[in-house]
Write a protein that binds this DNA or RNA. Structure first.
Lengths: 217, 217
DNA sequence: GCAAGGTCTTCTGAATTCATAATTAAGGTT
DNA sequence: AACCTTAATTATGAATTCAGAAGACCTTGC
């Protein structure tokens, strides 16, 4: 995220608003009260409105002419679209990571993988999902493609608020774990094509989608 | 681009700055003179700076703390990364378009395809590239995936300034045309898998990359 | 003559002020 | 009593003002 230091005021404000949205403090579809947030953050409206412009582009809010900003609704259709794109990007990341991953990155992913396995065996889903997430992010970073990393992180941010709410069935869960096993093997073999294929068929996102059928309006 | 009306002042300003960058009026690496652009556009600094925040997240400029904005340099590495991602997104678009394309969209793409062929036969490269571009965009739109469309258009914007400068060799050109032939066939057959495969191997971007070897620092 | 330190100018970052548009409430009319 | 119209209030959009930082230029000392 912060390839350039995010130490600007509008950057800080944007980050905090993202958090508010992710936490649900700002409900989807509700208006974003500029004045209230200003005093809450202790800043004037100028940096806050700059932050809103950025958030609008990132897809967190939508700007209505002369009517301010509303929190984006994140419909089921949007979620589906987002996961489709993320899955495709992960496939590309896998392909590239197979060619470009460093020893250190591989070791890190293996460590995460074993952590994830241990969480799986203990049935700790929250920790499992966290490690899972970190593995996918690490693969994206290992692609060494800055544009890919940026776009992926942005999309990941957008769906952050619905992550970690999924309830996995045991069948899905065990299959996802076995796919992760194959992923690590492909990484060790530096087999980008195989890894890309696994990731493009990896059902993590599909699982999350199905788990989200009820929510998201 | 304008899913919501872009009729805001900062949106207009952003568009005009994008144009200036694409036209080369603002050189890569050079600073963005706020004051000068303000009087040039006849607006105050507030909407202009809001526009710069957006452009920063779009990748057109980078913000240096307390030193304003510089036009992003678009190095060869960045170009390569961008094309990698775009190619992957096009592959996904092809896959989805195969399942979801409407009759009208298909007819439109076929019409563009024949226009493109005619430009090819006449050796009119500029017109060929334009039609080519439109076909790829139309396939992306036919994917019916709004997130994909947004991300793709953004990346397309970024590389706009280096498009249409490529000089294609005859070998590359004829191969690209034959690949386009296969693409239209796959679309007619609603064969998303095939179309995705063709697009992921389509060498248009590679051609452009090679043609851009010398430029972009 | 060259370098180092300081000051001055210019530009960015943020707050405040001003204007305009929208929404809501109140009053009048039907 | 209900609905429409109008006015007032509130919030957004933009300009201006103010403060702080960076860069340039000049002066002075070595």
């Amino acid at each position: 995220m912060d390839k350039i230091r995010q130490n600007t005021l509008h950057g800080e404000v944007a980050e905090r608003i993202r958090d508010l949205i992710a936490q649900g403090a700002l409900a989807p579809g509700s208006r974003v009260p500029e004045k209230q947030l200003c005093e809450q953050f202790g800043v004037s409206r100028t940096p806050l409105r700059e932050a809103l412009k950025v958030l609008a582009y990132e897809g967190f809010v939508e700007l209505l002419p002369n009517r301010g900003a509303r929190v984006a609704k994140l419909t089921k259709a949007t979620l589906k679209s987002t996961f489709e794109v993320m899955q495709s990007l992960e496939a590309l990341a896998g392909e590239l990571a197979g060619q470009r991953i460093t020893e250190a990155e591989l070791a890190n992913i293996e460590a995460l993988h074993y952590q994830m396995l241990s969480h799986y065996k203990r049935g700790n889903m929250q920790e499992y999902l966290l490690a899972n997430q970190q593995i996918h992010e690490a693969i994206v970073v290992a692609s060494q493609n800055d544009v890919l990393i940026d776009v992926y992180k942005n999309l990941n941010h957008r769906v952050r608020r619905v992550r970690f709410t999924a309830e996995l069935s045991n069948d899905y869960w065990s299959q996802a774990v076995s796919e992760h096993e194959s992923m690590v093997e492909a990484l060790r073999a530096r087999d980008g094509a195989a890894l890309g294929g696994i990731l493009s068929r990896h059902l993590r996102n599909k699982v999350e989608m199905s788990a989200l059928e009820e929510m998201a309006e």
